[in-house]
């Protein structure tokens, strides 16, 4: 890690003690971070003997069999489809609802505005277990009374998940919308747009980075949720979060397949997140200066 000259930043180069501290500490942190990632990648390429005996750093005979076998050990494809439907549905609904709510919060002063923001945001502080039990009972009993199969349905899970990302999405989008000059939507209004037209034609295009960041966040949230998925799904609607544990409850644990499936499931969200993390940081920064 050779130092590049810092241009117009600090007038002096950092002393050697700082540079060495930085090298050593950051290297250790990188090792700590990457060792599990390495374990995941290397084990996904191992034959079964390798993951049943003593741990090996390098596969004795690299193979892609785990990536083929994992589809038949558990109904992975079904879990995948369920996760895509649930996470996709929750994300779409959450982002659309958040855009509307953020527009109202940033462009209007109305009675109950503060109560709304504070209430919605503070629900996020509550432990999930607190509303898991009642929500479970509500779905079971409402289903009983009306004949609707709520409990175990994808729709109920979508409804639940969309609320998990909603508060952060509203808060972040409201920040983005605030930064767009009101003159822009007023100009659109003069041109004959209604308030909704101004939102769709001016505000949404201008805050696309924020919307993309919020979308990624909402998708990650729904894709990774375990607690509600463990209770509110059945065999047919099970998502990856719970389905992947199926490899471990078999007679043998196919760790190589577990790792292969984990990798395949992780890559879309990790790639999306790393590509778009700048927007997320920008959103956090915008929020913190307000």
């Amino acid at each position: 890690m050779a130092e590049t000259r810092t241009r117009g930043r600090a007038p002096t180069d950092p002393p050697a003690s700082f540079v060495w501290t930085r090298r050593i500490v950051l290297t250790l942190l990188a090792v700590f971070t990457l060792v599990p990632v390495y374990a995941m990648v290397s084990s996904s390429l191992k034959p079964l003997e390798d993951v049943q005996g003593k741990f090996r750093w390098i596969p004795s005979e690299p193979t892609i069999r785990p990536y083929i076998d994992m589809w038949s050990t558990v109904p992975l494809a079904r879990y995948f489809v369920n996760s895509v439907i649930v996470a996709g549905g929750a994300t779409l609904a959450s982002v659309v609802i958040a855009i509307g709510a953020a527009y109202a919060v940033s462009r209007y002063r109305f009675a109950g505005r503060r109560v709304f923001t504070v209430t919605v945001l503070s629900t996020q502080m509550f432990p999930g277990i607190l509303f898991l039990l009642p929500l479970f009972l509500i779905f079971v009993n409402v289903g009983n009374a009306t004949g609707l199969a709520l409990y175990g349905s994808r729709g109920a899970l979508i409804l639940t998940y969309l609320t998990f990302s909603l508060p952060f999405s509203i808060w972040m989008l409201a920040g983005y919308f605030e930064s767009i000059p009101r003159e822009l939507d007023e100009a659109a209004r003069v041109d004959g747009c209604g308030p909704v037209g101004a939102l769709l034609r001016v505000i949404v295009p201008a805050s696309l980075p924020g919307i993309v960041a919020v979308t990624v966040y909402a998708f990650m949230t729904a894709w990774g949720e375990v607690l509600f998925a463990s209770v509110m799904t059945n065999d047919q609607t099970r998502t990856l979060a719970i389905g992947l544990q199926g490899y471990s409850t078999q007679h043998e644990v196919y760790w190589n397949q577990v790792m292969a499936a984990s990798l395949v499931v992780s890559i879309p969200v990790v790639a999306g997140f790393l590509l778009l993390q700048r927007f997320l940081v920008a959103g956090l920064t915008a929020g913190s200066v307000k």
């Binding site: 942190l29 990188a30 971070t33 990457l34 599990p36 990632v37 374990a39 995941m40 084990s43 993951v51 990650m220 894709w223 990774g224 375990v226 990856l240 979060a241 992947l244 544990q245 471990s248 760790w255 577990v258 790792m259 984990s262 990798l263 499931v265 992780s266 969200v269 990790v270 997140f273 790393l274 993390q277």
Partner: peptide, 19 residues
């Protein structure tokens, strides 16, 4: 690199640790 653990779905990361 540092952000990878945050980006990984909880269950895949924790299953790797369990292994």
């Amino acid at each position: 690199i540092f952000l990878v653990p945050y980006a990984l779905p909880v269950y895949t990361a924790v299953m790797t640790w369990a292994f």
